[in-house]
């Protein structure tokens, strides 16, 4: 474990906790894309298949449980909770899951480190995580306004992945044989996807104006 990875995990944890608390306290999910939240729940479900078979560390297991519980409860709140679901804007959140899930699944079938069910699922979850934010970014562009918490959510998600890139660089130089192209490339693609959002987020924060993403 290195400081970059710990900071990355904590930032990632913050992003889901901030979102869950927002939805729980103000009983609203305005501006949040349910599609993205469902994709993230799928990412964790396919990423952590080994939670009961391979014990890595207490930290690892606890964090996996927190991510699984928080992502599924966010989806539950947005779909089932009688008050929260009313603020879900399903007419705007129309990104079709399959457009992301199928290509990631196909890609994982061809590009993976070992052709086993667990490995393909793990690779699928990496590719899916890279693109899972797209429905949220599309929704932000459509609704054009962004309340601060949604901005913070996307910002923390991007920051977590950027910290992970520093972690991979650190591990590459400090651990022999630590080479994982698949992880690195999908993580880089994911961070680049956030890059343009970051640019507009910083500008709006600096000029203290509401965030306006390009049409």
């Amino acid at each position: 474990m290195n400081i970059f990875r710990l900071a990355g995990d904590m930032t990632h944890l913050m992003s889901v906790i901030v979102l869950l608390l927002k939805i729980h306290t103000i009983k609203s999910c305005a501006g949040i894309s349910l599609k993205t939240q469902e994709l993230y729940a799928l990412v964790f479900a396919t990423r952590y298949l080994d939670i009961f078979t391979d014990f890595i560390s207490l930290y690892n297991t606890i964090m996996k449980l927190i991510f699984l519980a928080s992502s599924f409860s966010i989806v539950w709140y947005m779909r089932q909770h009688k008050i929260v679901r009313r603020s879900y804007d399903k007419d705007q959140d129309t990104f079709r899951h399959l457009f992301l899930i199928l290509p990631c699944l196909l890609l994982a079938l061809f590009i993976n480190e070992k052709f086993t069910f667990k490995e393909v699922m793990w690779t699928f979850s990496l590719f899916l995580e890279a693109v899972a934010i797209l429905p949220q970014l599309v929704l932000l562009q459509r609704t054009r306004n962004i309340d601060n918490l949604t901005g913070q959510y996307v910002f923390l998600l991007g920051a977590y992945r950027a910290l992970y890139i520093l972690n991979w660089i650190y591990r590459y130089f400090t651990e022999p044989h630590y080479v994982h192209w698949i992880t690195w490339i999908s993580g880089l693609v994911q961070t680049l996807l956030y890059a343009d959002f970051f640019y507009y987020y910083f500008n709006s924060w600096k000029n203290n104006v509401k965030l306006q993403l390009p049409a």
């Binding site: 990875r5 995990d9 990632h12 990423r47 080994d50 391979d54 890595i56 560390s57 690892n60 964090m63 996996k64 991510f67 480190e113 070992k114 490995e119 793990w122 992970y164 972690n167 044989h177 630590y178 994982h180 992880t183």
Partner: peptide, 10 residues
């Protein structure tokens, strides 16, 4: 090492 052992990241 087999790729499994290095799945120590979240």
């Amino acid at each position: 090492p087999s790729s499994d052992q290095t799945k120590d990241e979240l």
